[in-house]
């Protein structure tokens, strides 16, 4: 089994594919690869709501449900959350998420 996992970030017309070590958070997958629009101000402390993504509906149910702290912080995002909203610092990249598609909110 590969120790790498792929993440696809979609920001408007831009589509960026990155490959990271299994266990890396999707937020770090973005910030370590200079993907625009994922700020990750607090570094993954679940304190800032600047790594908001809309998970592609096809992938959403394959993730564990967000915890209560994450749901709280989703109320503090710059863009209105939807049923597919997550904070990407809380999404670990695994074999199951290999190829996951994450849409970046425009206003972030």
């Amino acid at each position: 089994m590969s120790d790498k996992s792929k993440v696809v970030f979609v920001n408007g017309a831009n589509r960026t594919e990155v490959e990271v070590l299994v266990g890396t958070s999707a937020m770090h997958a973005a910030t370590d690869n200079l993907v625009g629009g994922i700020i990750g101000e607090c570094g993954g402390d679940l304190s800032c709501a600047t790594c908001h993504v809309f998970v592609d509906p096809e992938w959403f149910d394959r993730l564990d449900a967000p915890g209560v702290d994450e749901r709280d912080m989703l109320e503090a995002t710059s863009e209105e959350p939807t049923e597919f909203s997550r904070l990407s610092c809380q999404i670990p990249c695994t074999a199951e998420t290999d190829g996951i598609v994450l849409h970046i909110p425009e206003s972030q």
Binding site: D45, L46, S47, D69, M73, E75, T77, E80
Partner: peptide, 20 residues
């Protein structure tokens, strides 16, 4: 520091969000 900081901060953070 994290993680204690995040636990305390979250108690009010949502009340300071941009849409609120």
């Amino acid at each position: 520091d994290p993680p204690a900081h995040g636990r305390v901060r979250r108690a009010a953070a949502k009340s300071f969000g941009p849409r609120v």
